[in-house]
Amino acid sequence: MTTDAQRQALRHAAQWFAQLCANPEDAALRAQWQRWHCRRAEHEWAWQQLTELQARLGGMPQQLAWNVMEKSTLRESGPNRRTLLKGLLLGAGASSLAWQGYDVAPRWMADLRTRTGEQRQAALADGTLLVLDTDTALDVMFNASTRLLVLRAGEVHVTTGKDSRPLLVRSAQGDLRALGTRFAVRQLDGLTRLSVYQHAVAVRPEQAEGEVVIEQGQSVTLDRQRLFATQPLKKGEEAWAQGRLVVEGWRLDTLINELQRYCPGYLGCASEVSHLRVSGSYSLGNIELTLNTIARSLPIRIQQITRYWTRILPV
């Protein structure tokens, strides 16, 4: 069984390998790597694992390399095995991907994941509490100076633990630094959305200078260059972390699109009823119950051909 220290060492070894490949003439960087390499026995072990695998996979096609890695890494299962594979994959591909390789690691290798329709709670070593929404992938990268959560997909609700190290959530668009207790980050298509429920969060888009502080009760959307106008949080917006969706005057098609995120199949709405307005508190863990509840208050019917194909129609 691989220890936590060994798994962390594999992560760091992959990072060092990527940086050294990208900067082969940097003597200062190599000296820093040498100090890291000699500091602990786990570091030497991780470097040996990575370089041996790199030597074996050096000339292989990518798919074949994947197959070899799956069979040649230590006999782990579940999250431990994914962590090993991820660290070794980054080492094997570092010469071409450099440090960006970690940011494009497949989401199925993430430390924490949920399937479509699943929500999951997780408690981290520092006391931070997480709620992962449907179809979410998140990596946890803690070291002596920083606590970093890398959001690959989906949405995460964060209640920060008491710790002197800064806590960052990194999305595809930038970094979000906790200044308080509770907030949520959602990865959208080309955008990130932040909702601050308690205290504040400092936001820095990837290609921007400096941070902007978003206060409690506000939400903001950002891309890699800038932040868009802040908006007040809607009533009940945090309820999703307790498995509920609270809506007030939503169009039916907007509600159905949101529920679609929790359905492993097709969920649609006919244009004839898309304009109808809906208010209420609905279960995210039982979409069938939610649809039946909505149908009792609106002139609609539910057409379900299979459990994976459902459409809302006029009566």
Rank of each mutant, 00 (worst) to 15 (best):
M1H: 12
A13K: 02
W16N: 14
F17T: 15
F17Y: 14
A18I: 02
Q19W: 08
N23W: 04
D26I: 13
A31N: 14
R40H: 05
E42N: 08
E44V: 14
W45A: 05
Q48H: 13
L57K: 13
G59R: 09
G59S: 08
Q62H: 09
V68M: 05
V68L: 06
E70M: 12
E70K: 09
K71I: 14
T73N: 08
G78E: 02
G78I: 11
R82G: 09
T83F: 11
L85G: 01
G87D: 00
L89P: 10
L90F: 08
S95R: 10
L97C: 14
Y102A: 03
A105D: 08
P106V: 08
R107E: 08
A110S: 07
A110G: 04
R113C: 11
Q121H: 14
A122R: 10
G127M: 01
T128P: 09
V131E: 03
D135G: 10
D139H: 05
V140L: 00
S145H: 09
S145M: 08
T146L: 05
R147F: 00
L148H: 01
R152C: 02
A153Q: 13
A153R: 15
E155Y: 01
T160N: 02
D163K: 01
P166H: 08
P166T: 07
R170C: 01
R177W: 07
L179M: 04
L188K: 02
R193P: 00
V196G: 03
V201G: 04
V201E: 02
V201H: 06
A202L: 00
A202Q: 00
V203A: 12
E209D: 14
E211I: 00
E211M: 00
S219P: 00
R226V: 06
F228I: 06
Q231I: 04
E237V: 05
E238W: 05
A239F: 11
W240A: 06
A241V: 10
A241R: 15
R244H: 03
W250M: 13
W250V: 12
R251I: 11
L252S: 06
D253K: 03
T254E: 11
Q260V: 12
C263V: 14
Y266F: 10
H275Y: 09
L276T: 13
S279A: 07
S281T: 15
L289E: 13
N292A: 07
N292C: 04
N292D: 15
T293N: 11
I294R: 03
A295Y: 13
S297Q: 14
I300W: 03
Q303L: 03
R311A: 09
